[in-house]
Amino acid sequence: MSLLEQVKFLLRITKTNDIIRRYFVVNGFDGALTMMGLIIGFIVSTPADLSVIINACLGAAIALGMSGLSSAYISESAERQHALGILEEAMISDLHESAHGEASRWVPILVALVNGLAPLVISLLILMPLWLSKAGVQLPVPPLYAAISIALFLIFLLGLFIGHIAKISWLRGGIQTLLVAVLTAGMIFLFAGH
C-alpha cells in the first residue's frame, strides 16, 4: 500500500476525513482573516516601516500555526485514545498493534499538521507582496493593498471549497465567505480608523 493509500485508509477507518476538511477550512479562514485584519490595521494607522509590518504579521502567522498544531494534536490525541479504548473494550483485545492503534498514533499528527499548516501557509501567501516589495520588486499596486487582494482571493477560494463540500453553487460559497471578509474589513475601518 502506498503512503497516500495508507493515509486514506487510516482516515477512513477512524472516519476523520470530514474532521480534517473542517479543520482546514476553519483554520485557513482564521489565518486569512487575521492577516487581512492586521494589514488593514496597519493601513489605517500611522504609516509603519514594511519590516515592522512583516514581522508583526509573521509573528501572528507563526502563532496561529503553532496554536493550530498544538491544540489539534492534544484534542485529537485524546479523542483517538478514547475511541480506541471503546473499541478495545468491545473487542476484548489489545488493538495497539492493529491498524486502529496505528491510526490512534498517526491521525492526531495528520490532523494537527493540517490544522497548523492551513493558517500558516495561507498567511505566508498573503504576506508575499510585502516580501517582494521589501526585496525591491516593483508591484502594480501598493504592497499592503496587494496583500489584501490576495487575502480576499484566498478567502473566496475557501468559499468555493465550502460550496463544493456542501454541494451548493460554488460561486454562492465563494460570495458568502467574501461577504464575511468585506464585513470584517468594514468593521475594522469603522472601529480602528479613528
Binding site: 485508509f9 477512513r12 477507518i13 477512524t14 468491545a90
Partner: peptide, 11 residues
C-alpha cells in the same frame, strides 16, 4: 472472526 465495523467487509 470478530471485527470492528471499520475497515468494512469489503476492505
Amino acid at each position: 472472526v470478530l471485527k470492528p465495523h471499520q475497515p468494512n467487509a469489503l476492505e
